[in-house]
């Protein structure tokens, strides 16, 4: 399945990235490229909406972690929203929900 990434700057200068599709070894490079293009210096809040993400493997986690590191290095914070129970479990098991703010889908 294909991956689509839609990145917008919100009115409050925060960044919202809406991702849908599967994040695996095939699609992760594309996501990485798009997230790296975000200027994390000009914002202090980034939100990634993962409601449309049905599957993420460890390569996908790697991309999110790299983005998280770049956001906090510039003094910002990262929130992930719309996680399916399966994705929430993945972030819990990996201990990442302890350092990245995650919200399950409503």
């Amino acid at each position: 399945m294909d991956l689509t990434v839609n990145i917008k700057t919100q009115q409050d200068n925060s960044i919202l990235g809406v991702i849908s599709g599967e994040i695996d070894a095939h699609t992760a490079p594309k996501l990485r490229e798009q997230l790296l293009a975000i200027d994390t210096k000009s914002t202090n809040k980034a939100v990634l909406d993962l409601a449309g993400v049905g599957y993420m493997d460890s390569t996908g986690i790697g991309v999110i972690v790299a983005f998280y590191k770049s956001v906090i290095a510039d003094g910002g914070e990262l929130t992930l929203i719309g996680l399916s129970p399966r994705l929430k479990r993945l972030f819990d098991i990996t201990g990442l929900s302890g350092i990245i703010h995650v919200e399950e889908e409503a």
Binding site: I61, I93, T94, G95, L96
Partner: peptide, 25 residues
């Protein structure tokens, strides 16, 4: 950050997740 291991209790014939000590990758 690893997948929890399973503990099989032979007396109860039941499986449990060993997920009490979770830590970061």
């Amino acid at each position: 950050g690893h997948e929890p291991a399973l503990y099989y209790c032979a007396r109860e014939e039941k499986f449990y997740d060993l997920d009490e000590s979770k830590g970061l990758l």
